[in-house]
Design a binder for these strands. Structure first.
Lengths: 301, 301
DNA sequence: ACCTGAACACCGTTCAAGT
DNA sequence: ACCTGAACACCGTTCAAGT
């Protein structure tokens, strides 16, 4: 909504469309953008990258960025790859991976495919259907080998496969396609592997399902935080300063009101660098804790 | 976006605003709406409920619903409670609790407070700020007693308090305000209680933080699914049929492709009623598993 | 000082009209 | 048959103008 790089990109886009910046003209440099809009350099870079992806501008090595000659002409239909459901979904996933799920709009996907927005509706029922299909496809990316594994090893493996998928697609855990009989074909494979590990323990069906759902929910629940991490490390510019602001307020609240002395102590014990919020480590720690709690030993069945 | 009850409500709203339905006129009955729009009765009821909340229509017991006399006149300013940040945030929470976070828009909050949309910006920086403040307020609702409790009892208590908050506000776990030093004042109290339980175990600071974050993430991660449950049981009408459709596809995929035999068997073992997806039970099961895995006994410290 | 109307740049989605 | 232009009902947000 308010990502600054998007606003800057929108501004430049309008100026290009209006003819204020003609084909061949240099766009403002990243430094100029950073100065004029009062943002970090990384944000300016990102704004230009958006326009580059749209084909509105082109990088001229050693001379800057110029407005492209063929101004946002949608690619002609003949000669170009046919518009298919698969291409639409893959493009949407690419956008979500790079810029977050909220930037996946019917219109943005259409632009990137050089097609009008209504054309999308020929292959997809609507945005909800699109997102659901993205999830299905993303979940289905990983194949499991037929290896013989002990219970614990297998449970760990499935959890790590899911974790890997979420790392690749940080928007995915938000979609919560956990549910009664898992509704997405792409999810079924993971559940199946979990059941393979739990099979033969003599668990009643309900307990089996509960265990499966709990493990799945643990991974997904933690993975939700990967998106925040991805956005923090990506060049959103603003978020850096904003983060420091909020953080300062929270730390103040903890230290000076004295209402949370243990939190304050922990923060100071962690030293000036703070806690390196390593989600991979937290994930492993929680996974081992859960499996230990289930009483599933390393030895296997 | 596409919730049918909202579309129906919007349609009726427009007809009222256009004068097609004048004050005192009967609105279409729920039965008529269900028939004309091809939706479930519950959806029709819900559509009218929306208009009722907006003050556009009134229920006339034993005679149906009529268009209200005072047509959406924003409440006059004098005599009415002053517009404050707190009132805005509370109204937004009420909307989110009842209809989901996606229906909380600057404009919808403004309408419910009888005020123009820009007026909201006098008290709140924007939608993001509003949502963040909603979370802070919701997290801060519960107070902890000063009771002396053993480690395990205290950890269970904190987890259950969080769970209760999420039950009340199913939109809350989506906001992932987990983070480095937790940025929301309202969250600090919960972290403090967790640390109180973990204090004195001789854990190094990093492990302490990891444990805290993991427990917190577990509760939040599972709670994300409460929203789906809330929406499934609420009268969204459509979702019921859609659910069955999707489910049928998934079950087919499992049974007939034979690629997920264990899942298929589990489904059939669970019997015709399926698994009653009781999140409270799954929550308790996972909580006990985690605490067992941490090696924190019931006995206490 | 506080609030509103009008506007702008976006959404998702529909539908008649074009090729 | 396939795609587009134009339109509609929404968004968040800004700003000049009103009281």
């Amino acid at each position: 909504m308010e990502a600054p790089y998007r606003r800057i990109a929108a501004d430049l886009r309008r100026r290009i469309r209006a003819g204020e910046l003609a084909p061949g003209d240099k766009t403002p440099s990243t430094r100029a953008i950073a100065r004029d809009f009062g943002v970090a350099l990384a944000t300016a870079v990102r704004a230009l990258a958006v326009l580059k992806e749209e084909g509105l501008v082109e990088a001229r090595p050693r001379s800057g960025t110029v407005v492209a000659a063929t101004l946002s002409r949608p690619r002609r239909h003949h000669g170009t790859a046919e518009l298919t459901r698969e291409r639409i979904v893959r493009e949407a996933i690419a956008i979500a991976d790079a810029e977050g799920l909220s930037t996946v709009t019917v219109r943005s996907v259409a632009v990137r495919l050089g097609v009008s927005a209504p054309a999308i509706y020929r292959h997809v029922r609507g945005r909800d259907d699109l997102v659901r299909t993205m999830a299905d496809l993303a979940y289905g990316e990983e194949r499991y080998p037929d290896a013989k594994l002990g219970r614990r090893d297998r449970l760990e493996m499935v959890a790590r496969v899911l974790w890997r998928i979420y790392r690749r697609h940080p928007w995915l855990p938000h979609l919560t396609p956990l549910g009664r009989p898992l509704p997405l074909p792409g999810v079924v494979g993971h559940g199946e592997q979990l059941l393979l590990a739990l099979d033969g323990l003599g668990l009643d069906p309900a307990t089996m399902m509960t265990t499966e759902v709990m493990l799945y929910a643990y991974v997904q629940g933690l993975a939700v935080h990967l998106e925040r991490e991805a956005q923090a490390t990506s060049a959103t510019g603003l978020s850096e300063e904003q983060w420091v602001d909020t953080q300062a307020g929270a730390i103040n609240a903890m230290f000076f009101t004295g209402r949370a002395p243990l939190s304050a102590k922990l923060i100071s014990d962690l030293g000036p660098d703070g806690f390196d919020f390593d989600l991979d480590r937290i994930f492993e720690f929680g996974l081992q804790t859960l499996l230990n709690g289930l009483g599933i030993g390393k030895a296997g069945w």
